[in-house]
Each structure stands twice: as C-alpha cells, then as structure tokens.
Write a protein that binds this DNA or RNA. Structure first.
Lengths: 254, 254
DNA sequence: AAATGCCGTTGCAAATAGTGAAATGCACAT
DNA sequence: ATGTGCATTTCACTATTTGCAACGGCATTT
C-alpha cells in the first residue's frame, strides 16, 4: 500500500464519523501502526490538510482541504453554475433535488436542496452514490464513456434493497432505455420507498460528467409525475451543460 | 522530503494556475522527476483527488477534493453559518466583505462578497492572507494563542507594498491596539490603495479561528467610515461565533 | 497510595516503497 | 520519412517508511 494511499485513507476516515478523532482510534480504524498514523498526520498537518486540537490532541480535517476545493471550484465552477439550476428545479417540483459529480469511486453528491414537505427524501452531501442502484448512476452510465459503463456491468452489483438491480442484463436494459429517453428512472434501488428521476450533465466531449436528480417518496408520486420530473431534469441538465461549456468556446473539459 | 509532502505539493500546484496541467509541466514546477510525479498522480487518481483527461492526458484536481471539503463542512459548518452574515454585512456596508479561516500557512479566504460598485476591492477565493500585512491577520493575532502570535513576530515580515509593517515592534503595537478595540485596521499593507477593517471570529476556547473583514478603496473611505465598519465587523464576528458555538453546548471546537 | 490501563510520543534496526536514468512507445509536426 | 516532444515502463539502487518496544503522562481503579 502506497504512502499517499495511507494518507488519503486517513483523510477519509477523518471526514467520516465524528468531527474529531483520537490518534489511537484513527490508527485502529485505518489498521495502521500508531507511530505510522501519527507520522502521516504530522505531514498532513504541516500542509494544513489536518488540524490538531492543542489541548485534547484530537485530529480533524483542516482548512487546507477547503482551500483546495475552492481552488478547484475557481478552475471549474461546477457548483457555482449548477447550484442555481438545482434550486430552481427544487422550487418548481417541490421535491428534493440533488446534484452529483463523477468520481472514480461513484457519483459524489455535491449539492442538495431538500423538499419543504415533512415527508421528504434526504440526501447527505458528500455521499457517494452507487452507479447501478440509483437513477443518477444509470443516467450517468447511459452517457458515459464505454470503458466506465463496461467496468460497472462487469463488476459486482451489491444489493442495497430487495429492489436493487443485481443482474447485468437488466442493468444494461435500463441504461439503454435511459439513453433513448434522455433521462433515467430509479425505483427503490438504493433506499426503500424512494422514486428518482435523473438526467446526465454532459461535458464538452459529449460524455457525462455528473447528474441532476429529483427524488420523491413513492407515495407522493402520481400518474404523470415521472414524465413531468423527467422533462424537468433533462432541461435542467442541458441548461447546466450549456452554462458550463456553451459560453466558453476556448475551454475544453472531459 | 516526505512522500505525502510531495503529493500535497502536486495538489497545490494543480490548484494554482491553469485548470489543467501536463505531466512534464507539473514535474518541472514541483522539481520532481517525471516518473516520480506520475506515480504520485496515479495514486492520487486512484483515490479521486486528481483526474486525468482521457484524451489530452492533462491532469486536474478531482471531485474527491470536493468530497473531503463537503464532509469537513458537514462536521464543522463554518461556511454555512458564516456566509449569510457576510452577505448581510456586505449589503449593509456596500463594500467588499471577506471571510477567512486560520490555517498553518496563513488565513485562507473562504468566502467573498464583492461590492457592487465599479471601483471595488477584489479578493480571490482560496487566497492565503499574510498575518502581518492584513487587517484580518492582525485581528486574528490579537486574539490568537500566544504561540502563534510569537511565531509571526519572530519570523520574517516580507513587504508587499511600501506600507507593509516590517518591524516586529510596530506590529506588536497594532496587535495590542486591535485587542483593546476588538477590531483591527489595515492600511495598504497588502495591496496599495486598500483600507480594511477586520474582527476575529472566536472559537469555543476563546481563541480566534478566523476573521471577517470589510475592504474598501482608500478614496471612498470618509470620516467615520472606519469606526462604522469596525463596529459592523465586530458585531458580525460575534454573531458568527455565537451561531457556531452558542447553540450547541455539547460541541467543543478549538 | 500504589497499581493498572490507556494514550500519545520517541528511538532504532529491518524492510518495503520510492527514486531517477534510460529505454520504449506514441503522436504530431517537419 | 524523419525528428521532436511527450507520456509511460523498466530496473537496479537508495532512502524513506515501518512496526516493535520502551517511555512518560494521565486518569480511573484496587
């Protein structure tokens, strides 16, 4: 295991769970020696990616993380551009709308506007959505590079609910259907009782770079709602793509 | 130089400058061997912190960075809490207001609302502000742990403009004055023609964790404006502290 | 009060992981 | 065709990293 892999693991562990973590706890969770863990943390602290409480000796993610994220956002203002569209769609539908961005590990939820209704779908910021079990994932795969799609179809398809698609053939059908329609639908594949509709946000090269999705409790979805939301996310996704890439002919982006 | 230090350097270089960077360019700027640079990048890519354009082979910061930042924000919602206060102060003063957070390297600018006026002060998100040359820095040091203050007073005080404070004694006086008043003033120490007023945002232990500042072009600052803005930032800073720590008696934070 | 357990920190020899020069392969321009 | 510039791979060498073990501080327990 490479040293940077270990360092990143520590960051991920610090990010998940409690806001602050003790050294021994961290070492145990990461399965590293205490000494190793501490030395990695010292390096990370020197660069501001981790901070340590002076008195309690507890560790937490540092402001350097935020700095990197801000620099990235300055280079590629995905959130700044897409967030208003998400808000607008949330207002128009009255349901929870979430935005995600592709990453090696899955689709990362980068923005959420929850429905104002009491019975609503809640999505955690930073959550990683599985490709095969969510409307977002299927919408993404329908417009992704073939390499990514095949990797998912070839890999394991863990079940999150009894409704999760566990068969590569069925998944391929869903993907094909989503490609034909321009948006996907997800039915309780990740969480029970949740229906979702998602559309891909396309990059400059025509491949998906993220998705926008509407998620509603099953009991509230009536005839025509799926189609209405499907049209909504498709328009919103296209809108985001255009704002990101339409106005800047010089800039290329995968 | 430790391996994680190198990996983080690459992230910083990727964040600064152009949105996408070539391997050779990156290796040159970091002063690493091309092979070394690439292997580090491969590790970072595996964890989603870096992405590579499939066709151009250019590297950029990945969505994993955003994920870590979101997880951090979920643990400690500094931006979510402070941003509305910054907006309000910007609306009230009509000038540029910026928010920063302490990090080992300096004060990191995490939120900015620029003045609507044509002649306005512009601050870059993610910028690191020097402690000795900005109103924010002096406000921070006035309420920081002694260790940090002394490290700055002992260290070098590079000049950014002819007005930058270059003398430890003068700096100590400014810090003392800021502590007495509850807010600091900065006069063209970092950028020519800019006057700033800043106040510290205090953590649960009473030490500063960040600052909020109003920055205006010198020509627009008239009699009484300094005092008015000083009162404004002080109230805003206290407001943020209270919203962060007042409501959650169980949570501690340095 | 002494003892026990837990935690963070430091030192050191062993070993794994990282290093860089050079070679290979790939595209594009000459 | 030939050349140039780039990314990528290989391999012997070296240095960083590693984990054990011991230490000191702190709190709770006996």
């Amino acid at each position: 295991m490479s040293t940077v892999a270990k360092a990143v693991s520590l960051l991920e562990i610090l990010g998940s769970g409690a806001p602050e973590t003790a050294l021994a706890d961290l070492a145990r969770r990461a399965c590293f020696d205490k000494a190793t863990t501490r030395r990695l943390l010292v390096s990370l602290i020197a660069h501001g990616l981790v901070e340590q409480d002076e008195t309690t000796r507890l560790y937490r993610l540092g402001a350097g993380i935020a700095r990197l994220a801000l620099m990235r956002e300055a280079q590629f203002p995905f959130l700044r551009i897409a967030a208003p569209v998400v808000e607008a769609l949330a207002a128009a539908t009255g349901e929870t709308v979430h935005l995600s961005e592709y990453s090696k590990r899955g689709l990362i939820t980068v923005h959420v506007v929850e429905s104002a209704k009491a019975n609503r779908v809640s999505v955690q910021l930073g959550d990683v959505l599985p490709m095969h079990a969510t409307a977002s994932g299927i919408a993404f795969l329908a417009f992704s590079e073939e390499r990514i799609r095949e990797a998912i179809l070839a890999g394991p398809l863990p079940a999150f609910t009894p409704h999760t698609i566990g068969d590569a053939g069925t998944l391929a059908e869903h993907i094909a259907a989503a490609r034909a329609r321009g948006h996907s639908t997800g039915s309780q594949g990740y969480e029970e009782g949740v229906l979702s509709v998602a559309a891909p946000i396309l990059g400059a090269d025509g491949f998906a770079i993220g998705t926008i999705a509407v998620a509603a409790p099953r009991v509230r979805v009536h005839t025509g709602d799926i189609e209405r939301h499907g049209a909504g996310v498709a328009v919103a996704a296209r809108d985001i793509s255009e704002r990101l890439f339409g106005g800047l002919p010089g800039r290329k982006r995968a």
